[in-house]
Nucleic acid binder design. Structure first.
Length: 588
RNA sequence: GGUCCUGUGGAGCAGUUGGAGUGCUCGCCGCCCUGUCAAGGCGGAGGUCGCGGGUUCAAGUCCCGUCAGGACCGCCA
């Protein structure tokens, strides 16, 4: 190595040692006769000093982010000049010689932790952004997280196995990224949305315990917690029940949060059924850092003359409410703002009743439409106090109204300051439904088509697809779904019946994933697994706002990479060779 | 596909009712400076106000379109 020591490692014990350091000029303080330089390398920063002589004359020319080598003597700083802010603050290196490896042009963004920089500039010069301590620390944290997971899984006899990224379309619902195939013009690979089918094949292979930090691809629009290519910690196990998979999942999050967040998670994590989550929190990924639970008022308000509520109840739907503590203090404009908030989410509005802070008397537009009896018992029914606001949602579609209230719940907690930013609230959401209505009135799989019905439904799920429950589970942290999985179907007869409900004919099934069904003819073991959204897990551990922060070279919101300029056009020759324009041999 | 926010020297921001490219912090260039640590002092350079169109005597400011970045809905395990 060019260096003898890491800059960030120097302590008082090193005083008197002659060291060679190599790194970057983080900051310079040129006093003319004496020059201080913060020298940064991957380990941290140490102050180096140039005193009046030839080497100081050289040092005047240094600028931020020059890449340099210095040789010098570690000295204790003069009394009173220690910097308690720095781990290396007791010492400094008196430079005897300086070598400039390379100079740096004026910087397009400050390599400085004090300045917020726009995402476009940060991503275009991500390599400079990553020199900053925050982003650099995040990369290290992610590396440690991956290492912890590998160590833990290796210790439990899991095999790390890579699966193809050029493959056939998998049955998840998202749009595929497609790759034209030069050798077979007119045919296309798909990039995997997850290694789902391969990991099931590995179970047929007798691997029994598989994991992979797998890159996955989905061609859908972005969010702060979504990128077109992302990473899953993908796990699959044979001869297991749901509890076995959950146990592994809990061991992983417990290790991660203990080592990387200094937080001991109480195990086992609470489990809540999907229906209970929707009923109490209006979400299948409830944030349990605060209360603000929903109230089902469908029975309580039965018989009301208020058309909005009566319509939903008569249609067999749902009326519910959520309370905003202290919400009565909001101005009329703020209360109207909730209507705009609801409309922005596609709802007609968000009915509300204000409970007067002094008298507890209900008032507001909706109050006029409710009977004396309904109003009188309302506060008790929803658990509201004087000074609160009760928000209502009503719909013939139970889930739609619950989800509106669930979103309102999150917003209420945010606006009312009920979220404890230091808290970690984990839970499992279990017993998810197998099926949901799709746009055409048929059924589609909530999880994926290989998810097993639970023991209560395995014999009769087709008689009530709307109620059938699956061996499916999601792990949720602070309102973020960080992982999910299921026990898979290993019995051909059950698989056939699930396909029947989904409207997948034997021919469709054979065409899309016949290879899996074929494999399942040869003694498939009972198996199940889980996949963690690794970017989200790391985002939470890093306490970042976006998964872009925990990805070395992320795409921007528009799906572009500002650094490389990708995606780019291709040449006419590339286009011709790639087979992009080939006509399919058969109609599809 | 939809709603919203942002775009002003290299970076981060301010810019009032439409009235001169105006201002601030940092950076950059030059000079000074022997104990600083987000060093300090003096001086200087640097601008197609994202781009295009419109309204107006006059547009950074108002309107339309478009591009880029971001948030949300739709979509998406």
């Amino acid at each position: 190595m060019i260096r003898t020591h890491n800059a960030g490692s120097l302590r008082a014990e090193a005083v008197g040692t002659r060291v060679t350091l190599a790194g970057w000029v983080a900051r310079r303080r040129d006093h003319g006769g004496v020059i201080f330089l913060d020298l940064r390398d991957a380990s941290g920063v140490v102050q180096v000093v140039f005193r009046a002589d030839e080497v100081a004359d050289q040092a005047h020319a240094l600028r931020n982010e020059f890449c340099v080598k210095v040789v010098g003597l570690v000295e204790r700083r003069p009394a009173g000049n220690e910097n308690p802010e720095l781990p290396t603050g007791d010492v400094e290196v008196a430079v005897e010689s300086l070598e400039i490896f390379s100079e740096a042009a004026p910087l397009p963004l400050p390599v400085d932790d004090h300045v917020e920089v726009g995402d476009d500039v940060r991503l275009k010069y991500r390599y400079l952004d990553l020199r900053r301590s925050g982003p650099a620390r995040t990369l290290r944290l992610r590396s440690r997280a991956s290492q912890l997971a590998r160590t833990l899984l290796d210790g439990r006899d899991f095999l790390e196995i890579e699966t193809p990224t050029l493959t056939a379309s998998t049955p998840e619902g998202a749009r595929d990224f497609l790759v034209p195939v030069r050798l077979q013009p007119g045919t296309w690979f798909a990039l995997p949305q997850s290694p789902q089918l391969f990991k099931q094949l590995l179970m047929v292979s007798g691997v029994e315990r598989y994991y992979q930090l797998a890159r996955c691809y989905r061609d859908e629009d972005f969010r702060a917690d979504r990128q077109p290519e992302f990473t899953q910690l993908d796990i699959e196990m044979s001869f297991v029940t749901e509890d076995d998979v959950i146990d592994v999942g809990e061991a992983i999050v417990a290790a991660l949060w203990r080592e990387l967040a200094g937080h001991d998670i109480q195990l086992p994590l609470p489990r809540i059924t999907w229906h209970e989550a929707m009923h109490r929190y209006g979400s299948d990924k409830p944030d349990l850092r605060y209360g603000v639970e929903l109230s089902d008022l469908t029975d309580y308000l039965r018989g009301t003359t208020f058309r909005v509520f009566a319509g939903a109840i008569d249609a067999g739907g749902y009326v519910g409410a959520v309370v905003m503590p202290g919400g009565a203090g909001q101005t009329r404009r703020e209360l109207d703002g909730w209507q705009d908030w609801a409309k922005a989410r596609g709802a007609r509005g968000l009915a509300y009743v204000v409970l007067d802070a002094e008298t507890g008397q209900p008032r507001g537009p909706v109050a006029k439409n409710l009977s004396e009896a309904h109003l009188a018992g309302l506060a008790d029914e929803v658990g509201a106090k004087p000074g609160d606001v009760v928000f209502f949602a009503a719909s013939a579609d139970r889930r739609e109204a619950q989800e509106l209230l669930g979103a309102a719940r999150v917003e209420i907690a945010r606006r009312a300051g009920l979220v404890d930013d230091d808290a970690w609230a984990f839970c499992w959401v279990v017993d998810a439904p197998m099926f949901e209505r799709d746009a055409d009135g048929g059924w589609s799989a909530v999880h994926h088509p290989f998810t097993a019905p639970n023991d209560d439904w395995v014999d009769g799920f087709e008689s009530a697809p709307d109620q059938a429950l699956a061996f499916a589970y999601d792990i949720v942290c602070n309102g973020n779904e960080i992982g999910g999985g299921s026990i898979r179907i290993h019995r051909p007869d059950v698989q056939r019946r699930v396909f029947d409900v989904l409207g997948i004919t034997p021919e469709d099934a054979a065409a899309k994933f016949g290879f899996l069904l074929e494999a399942f003819k040869f003694g498939p073991p009972p198996h199940g697994g889980i996949a963690f959204g690794w970017d989200r897990v790391c985002m939470l551990l890093a306490e970042a706002d976006s998964i872009r922060e925990v990805i070395a070279f992320p795409k921007s919101r528009g799906g572009l990479d500002p650094l490389t300029g990708a995606p780019t056009q291709i040449t006419a020759r590339q286009r011709a060779e790639a087979g992009v324009d080939a006509k399919p041999k058969t109609a599809t």
